[in-house]
Write a protein that binds this DNA or RNA. Sequence first.
DNA 1: GTCATAGGACTACATTTGTAGTCGTTGTGT
DNA 2: ACACAACGACTACAAATGTAGTCCTATGAC
Lengths: 155, 155
Amino acid sequence: MAAEKHEPPALSPTEWEVMKVLWERGPLAARDVFAGLPRDARGKPVHDWAYRTVKTLLSRLVAKGALDYEQVGNSYLYRAAVAQEAMARQEVGGLLDRLTSHTGAAGRKVVSTVLAQFLGDAELSDDEVRQLQAALERNRRAAPGKPPRRGGRSK
Amino acid sequence: MAAEKHEPPALSPTEWEVMKVLWERGPLAARDVFAGLPRDARGKPVHDWAYRTVKTLLSRLVAKGALDYEQVGNSYLYRAAVAQEAMARQEVGGLLDRLTSHTGAAGRKVVSTVLAQFLGDAELSDDEVRQLQAALERNRRAAPGKPPRRGGRSK
DNA sequence: GTCATAGGACTACATTTGTAGTCGTTGTGT
DNA sequence: ACACAACGACTACAAATGTAGTCCTATGAC
């Protein structure tokens, strides 16, 4: 009951961009986060953000509890305080909920069709395909009948 | 070149809720959209919105081009002007992009793991499971090797 | 010890979103 | 015709988000 590790703070799209840098490269100073932002093939930054902007995002992320930091010299070393997987789960769950909650079979079908399109076109490694296939297999064994049951809320 | 049917207007979560009513029940007057909002088992509205709020959302959706309307008597009959599938595709695509763009294999793996969890736990009908399995099969045949290729940009 | 500077804290401001309220108009019942 | 109820148009306002700027301080170079 005491553990309230759930409901992480919901990241905005730009905040995700910053978090991805930290999840991939580990703890970094603000300068290095800035430098680590994605660039296109020609080396041009994908996001045209001022350094200040990144600083603001880092501060907001600390305020949200998504990052914490450690002072090192005159600057902070920022480090992800939430797991990428937890955030990804939250986003995906939120989306599926938005798209399907309180919707009849038709609405759910639309979503599953769209999902199928993405799964068919995505660039997936063989391992990923196998992982997803296994998940569907598991689903099938768990839900013998077809009638869509009220799903397991992990709450 | 002339056809610019793409890039529909991105709906906020509350706007989705309104659109779902119209997609499911077809053209409705504001009153009926309001009345058609989801309710829980005990008949209590899931969203505690004032009628005005719904009116505001309908207006914004018209402004965004997601709805259009036809005057009928003294009121408007609102009708979805964008397909649910198109919007769902946009949302799913946007999410996958946010979570995986400019990310290495590690980031993509996290997402595929999360997806697998949802696919395993979701309440899917047998048909939906088959549809998704077929999509993965298709993916497999399309991408013989494993190296994640640059995906098909539909532009 | 002094001074330039990188860095963090605080401030700024337009837009979008969530949530409504006010007001004037128009159709409706009598 | 008249009064009123229902509608839609316009207005309101706080929080979140995208995008930065200002300013003070601790740090490091001499």
